[in-house]
Design a protein around this nucleic acid. Structure first.
Length: 391
DNA sequence: TCTGGGGTCCTAGGACCC
DNA sequence: TCTGGGGTCCTAGGACCC
């Protein structure tokens, strides 16, 4: 989906069309503020100059999405809000409305599945679709079906998307970037040398910032540079699995199927504080947040019908280093108090001298609640208070 | 100018068992 | 007294993705 979060907001605020807008940060209250102040008129009638500007933004968030006009200023996803404010101070800021985004996410996926049922969910704004068995899926190399999907989505939601059609997921993903927004790109097997090899290594889905730097040091800048290396040399430099995968990827080889269903592996909740907190000085505040995270992850488990056996915590220090600790219990649980207790045990094993900027709670080793025998007798475990426990 | 939140997968060492 | 493989599970960290 093109600039998904921002496009969803533009549907309710069409007066912002064509303007630099960024979505992100915390300020959930912005939308309510606007609606309160202009309670007498619909959202679409709120004057443009009533919207908050990026230069007035204070906070630690990152940008989730920028509209295309904002991207012209170099503003992009995952960029810190403060940096973005310097690049494009006049951009308007809106908070993420997850409810609304998820609603449209479910919507566009349902439309696609109606047309092409073999669809793999790759997050809120992205899917893989297998055209192979869809009637007409091969016409014009897939362009006809791609156009049909675009039209169906646009007709019912007003949103645009970009589609790449290729012999496998790896190339399709790269192809989808070729013609944004609202574009279609067809890449055939024989096009790998001309269309894929000139691309920067970073364009391969699976080569991130770390590998990019390492490749750069080895003087490999493009996909073609990787393809030109012997497989064994890549294995020597990047390890058996990653080196071999990289070689295949550079040659456009990928046999992963389109997976229509999958089971979750873990569920977690985490939060970055408005200011860094100290385990001792801000004990009460941290304790409340910690308990809340446990409660919310337990709610998530119950709502979705899962139980888990590994409870873990995540800490991010003021210097951005991350520490994780986890413990595997004998029995599956979705009980907030049990999660809280186990997470508290984990907490005793980390350094709490440094100030913290983030705290998270995770439950892993999941199983469907319906497929796990319920706990026999509720165990009475002695309560061993941890540092964040309330007195 | 400091860098969100929710995930998956991989690696590597150590415990433990046969 | 010294020394086997093979396998699984647990834990911590890290790379990467949307």
């Amino acid at each position: 989906m093109d600039a998904f979060f921002a496009s969803v907001e533009l549907l309710r605020y069409p007066q912002l069309k064509g303007l630099p807008v960024v979505i992100g940060g915390g300020r959930r209250e912005v939308d309510e503020l606007l609606r309160e102040r202009y309670a007498d008129r619909p959202r679409s009638q709120i004057p443009v100059d009533a919207f908050p500007l990026l230069k007035d933004y204070v906070g630690r968030g990152v940008i989730t999405t920028a509209t295309y006009p904002a991207r012209q200023f170099g503003v992009g996803s995952a960029m810190g809000m403060m940096k973005a404010a310097r690049l494009c101070p006049q951009a308007l800021v809106l908070p993420v409305d997850f409810e609304e985004v998820r609603r449209y996410s479910r919507g566009f996926k349902a439309i696609i599945r109606d047309i092409a049922p073999v669809m793999e969910d790759r997050g809120v704004d992205e899917v893989y679709i297998d055209f192979t068995e869809v009637p007409g899926g091969q016409r014009e190399g897939g362009r006809v079906l791609a156009r049909l999907i675009q039209k169906a989505i646009h007709d019912t939601t007003g949103l645009t998307c970009s589609i790449g059609v290729a012999p496998n997921k790896l190339i399709a993903k790269m192809a989808s970037e070729f013609n944004k927004p609202n574009g279609i790109s067809i890449v055939y097997e024989d096009d790998v040398q001309t269309k894929i090899w000139p691309l920067a290594v970073r364009k391969i889905n699976g080569i991130g910032p770390k590998s990019e730097v390492k490749l750069q040091k080895l003087h490999l800048l493009t996909v073609g540079d990787i393809a030109a290396q012997p497989r064994d040399w890549l294995v020597d430099n990047f390890g058996q699995a990653y080196g071999a995968w990289m070689h295949d990827a550079a040659w456009g080889r990928d046999d992963r199927p389109v997976v229509t269903e999958s089971e979750p592996v873990s569920m977690s909740r985490e939060t970055t504080f408005d200011r860094d907190l100290h385990a001792v000085r801000d004990r009460a505040e941290l304790g409340a947040i910690f308990t809340d995270l446990c409660t919310r992850v337990a709610e998530d488990l119950r709502r979705k019908g899962y139980v888990g056996r590994t409870i873990g915590i995540k800490l991010r220090y003021d210097d951005f280093r991350t520490a994780t600790r986890d413990i595997t219990l004998d029995a599956y649980t979705d009980d907030p108090a049990t999660i809280r207790r186990a997470a508290g045990q984990c907490l005793k094993r980390v350094d709490l001298a440094r100030r913290l900027r983030l705290l998270g709670v995770r439950v892993g080793k999941l199983a469907k609640a319906s497929e796990v025998p319920p706990p026999s007798t509720p165990r009475v475990e002695e309560h061993t208070p941890d540092l964040f426990s309330q007195a």
